[in-house]
Amino acid sequence: MLNFFKKIKKDNEIIEKEDKKGLYQRLKDGLARTRDNFTAKIDDILSLGRKVDDELFEELEEILILADVGVSTTEKIIDNLKEKAKEQKVKDAEKIKELLAEEIYDIMEAKETSLKITPPTLILIVGVNGVGKTTTIGKLANKFKREGKRVLLVAADTFRAAAIDQLDVWAGRNNCEIIRHEEGSDPASVLFDGIKAAKSRNVDVILCDTAGRLHNKKNLMEELKKIYRVAQREFNEGNIETFLVLDATTGQNAIQQAKIFKEATDVTGIILTKLDGTAKGGIVISIKSELDIPVRFIGVGEGIDDFQEFDSEKFVKALFE
């Protein structure tokens, strides 16, 4: 398994890395650390033929909070768990684990519909600085190319130094088209040109990169709204998806990010990156529970194949196996 986590040094290798393992296996491996940390502790607590008492619930509460699930969602989960345990007169601590998995699964699955990308689709990628937006676009582009779709990248991060070049490298690797302007130009106009080009070239999926912005910067959020308005106006015949990219290591602030980005651009899904560290990604549960934004993709490694469509069943299963 360690081998799996080894950094792939050459760009080509990332692309050429074969799909040796099944999706489920890879997801499981990627989540191994999460699981090890998370369930190992739960097992510790639940194994020794323990009694179901307040102390037990308190310890479970701790674990959820350490996984970044957040105080309010944790309390909600634990309250439900207590109620269920009482209802079903659970005396066995082992059974509590099952109920906990069920509880989290229920939150993740609530009102869930699966993602369908029907061409033409415009995907706007938004998020705060450093979460991995550009890399995510590279991986998404690869996925859609493999599905035989015609992909166009739009370099609307005109702010960060060399962001356009970074996207350009990904366009080259995935052999897809890219629309770019000068650094410092108006991002909305780059998207405008991108949509025009996509229409005349019959592109299936437009992937629009945007500059990282902290959600509390009013003027930057206004700029993002403008980009979104251009998308709505110029692409009204196609589907528009807005994906918020979140770093799995982010704490409770992620909720605030999701809230404000949703207000600005009607976020339709979340892409959770960097889940291959020791971060537990529990914030996803919080976001789903509080804002009802589904997680669409997760990144569990550096390789291009370590980018997966999110599946709550597999996610919870892998977490508790």
Binding site: L66, T250, G251, G277, A279
Partner: peptide, 12 residues
């Protein structure tokens, strides 16, 4: 270190 990091900051 990103100030927005959650509980995991300790491990990092």
């Amino acid at each position: 270190v990103d100030a927005m990091t959650g509980q995991d900051v300790v491990n990092v």
